[in-house]
Design a protein around this nucleic acid. Structure first.
Lengths: 144, 144
DNA sequence: CGCTTGTTTAGAATTATTCTAAATCTTGAC
DNA sequence: GTCAAGATTTAGAATAATTCTAAACAAGCG
């Protein structure tokens, strides 16, 4: 049982990519599918490995290219949590990330639609914001 | 005219490092000084280059070690803004970062002392949070 | 069809970070 | 003070993450 209706999604993908002058290619479709199939904030390397299963000839550079394309047209977000590889996330709703410093798991957490009380100096034009919370997740806190 | 009183600071450094079982060394002092002298969120590489001026024999690995030591004992923060090098910041007051996507400059912005309205699931134990705002800074917005 | 532009590919190159082993320094026990 | 234990530094190698390059392909268009 698939959770998505392919034709509707293809259309969505094409449309979103189109807004930035980008084309829908089988590779971009595949990378997007990988992101949506397991939403565990994979690194580019992990996306590469997963995408290779269905598309063995896909290359490293293409995965980076596809991920960048998806980020650029607003279908995925980059997440920078710590030193090391960038992670990717297809959840485009307003949300932040809880990063467990014990087990490393990343959880999506809800955020208010506007970040209140942040004093942005006048003249500055905010476009997006990222919130990361570091701490211990419920599982790891219990085991302590 | 120096802004700091060295003896007071050395004491502070030693004290903070001590809380984690770390020693004050000339290299750690130097790296800390570099961070405080120009608060432009340098990368480890930039810290290395600046520290080398006063201490030409300092090595790459030592700079990473020192930065990690400072982060561990609460004298500096790591900042992850985008793909690429991690940046470091000696401003330990509660603050977020505004990252100008045009010129790349990073500005500290004030934050409320508690992040309100963030629904952290029960059992999770937050320790710190990072807020990054991406957008266009006042200078770049004017030039457009 | 033939051109232009966008995309993919393998692999090289670059950048960022960590590791390694030897040398050096500090500290505390005697 | 001397010595061992442990922490720290060092240069350079190794690894990891990302970007670049040049050639091949593919799609859209006149």
């Amino acid at each position: 049982m698939k959770l998505r209706s392919p034709s509707h999604d293809d259309q969505h993908l094409t449309e979103r990519l189109g807004t930035t002058g980008l084309r829908l290619t089988p590779q971009r479709q595949q990378v997007y599918d990988v992101l949506r199939q397991k939403r565990d904030h994979p690194t580019a390397e992990e996306v590469f490995i997963r995408a290779k299963k269905a598309m063995p000839e896909i290359s490293h550079a293409t995965v980076y290219n596809c991920l960048d394309a998806l980020v650029k047209c607003g279908l995925a977000r980059q997440v920078q949590l710590e030193r090391g590889a960038t992670r990717f996330c297809p959840n485009m709703t307003e949300h932040g990330h809880f990063h467990c410093s014990v087990c490393g798991t990343i959880y999506d957490v809800e955020l208010p639609h506007e970040l209140p009380c942040v004093a942005i100096p006048s003249g500055f034009e905010p476009q997006s914001y990222d919130v990361t919370i570091h701490g211990t997740c419920a599982d790891c806190a219990r085991k302590k």
